[in-house]
Write a protein that binds this DNA or RNA. Structure first.
Lengths: 143, 143
DNA sequence: AGATTAAAAGACCTTTTTATCCTTTTTATA
DNA sequence: TATAAAAAGGATAAAAAGGTCTTTTAATCT
C-alpha cells in the first residue's frame, strides 16, 4: 500500500504526536527504537517531514522532534502526500495515465470507491485524534 | 497500489478475457500494443499467469494467449495474489508484522475496512464479468 | 571558549523492481 | 520436411527503493 518511507514516516509521526500530548520531546534514537525502524533511514524521512513543517526539529542537547500545537490537527493524508505523493488517491488502479469518468478503465468505478474510502479515512484522521485514541486504547507501533 | 507487473498483468488478462469472449486468440505483440506495455516485460508476466494456469498459451503459428472456459470465472484477487502476493489484503497499513485485532496498530480498525473493501471488490469481480461489461460500456486499457 | 549533544546534509552502497535482448523450444502448415 | 510464427527461458542492464556512513551545523552547558 505505502512505501517503506511512508510506513516509517507514519509510525514516527504518530509516535511523536503521542509523546507531544505528554509534552515530551523525542530524539531520533528513541523514535527508531520505539517504532522499530532503521535509524539512519528514519532520519531521512523525518527530514522530509521537518521541511514540510509537519514536525519541528530542535538540534542540540535535549533536542529532538516534536509537533507544534497548531500542527497536531495535521491529517494523515498530508503525511502520505509528502512521502508518497498522491497517486494513491488520484491514480488509476491499472496504472493508466488518463483514466477518469469520461474515459474509464474497466475497473475505474470500482476503484474510485476504494480510493475514496481510503482518502476519506486519511483526510478525516488527525494526528491529535490518533494520539488521544492511543492514550485510551492499547495499541502498538513496533514489531 | 499494485506493482507494475501486476498492473500489466491485470490489463493483459482483462484484454485476453475480452478477446476470448469473441473467440480470438491473441499474441504477445498484440497484447502489448493494445494495453500499451513493454513487450518483453509483459511476456514475463504472462509466463507467470500461464504457469498459474490462469491463462493458456499456445506456441507456434496462430498461437498466442487465451483463457479456457472454466477459467473465465477467475477472480481478480487470484491474479493479484499470483503477481503481488496477498500483503495488500493481510498486511498492516503501517508495515507491522504482527498487527491484528488483539494487538492492533493505532490505525488497524480503520485500515481493516479499506482492505476488506478492496478484497471484496477483487474477490467478487471475475474476468468474465469484466469482459461482458466491456462489450456493453466503452472503456480503455491503454494510455 | 570548549565540549557535548543532536539533527541536517550529502555521498555512497545494496537490493529489488522494471526492462531489454538473445537464444531455444514448440508447433502449424506450405 | 523446411520454414516461419510464437511462446519460453536465460542473461544482463537500468532505474528506483531501501539503507548506511561521514561530515557539517546548531544548541546547550559547563
Amino acid at each position: 500500500m505505502f512505501s517503506k518511507s511512508c510506513e516509517y514516516g507514519l509510525r514516527a509521526v504518530i509516535f511523536i504526536a503521542q509523546q507531544t500530548t505528554k509534552n515530551n520531546m523525542v530524539s531520533l534514537s528513541t523514535i527508531s527504537e520505539e517504532i522499530n525502524s532503521p535509524q539512519a533511514f528514519t532520519a531521512k524521512v523525518l527530514q522530509q517531514l521537518t521541511r514540510s513543517n509537519i514536525v519541528k526539529s530542535v538540534k542540540g542537547p535535549y533536542g529532538g522532534f516534536t509537533i507544534e500545537d497548531n500542527k497536531m490537527n495535521t491529517k494523515l493524508s498530508e503525511v502520505v502526500s509528502v512521502l508518497d505523493g498522491d497517486a494513491i488517491y488520484t491514480g488509476c488502479g491499472l496504472g493508466l495515465k488518463q483514466c477518469d469518468a469520461n474515459s474509464p478503465c474497466p475497473l475505474h468505478f470500482k476503484f474510485v470507491e476504494i480510493r475514496d474510502g481510503l482518502r476519506n479515512m486519511l483526510e478525516n484522521t488527525s494526528l491529535l485524534s490518533i494520539a488521544e485514541d492511543m492514550n485510551t486504547d492499547f495499541t502498538i507501533l513496533k514489531r
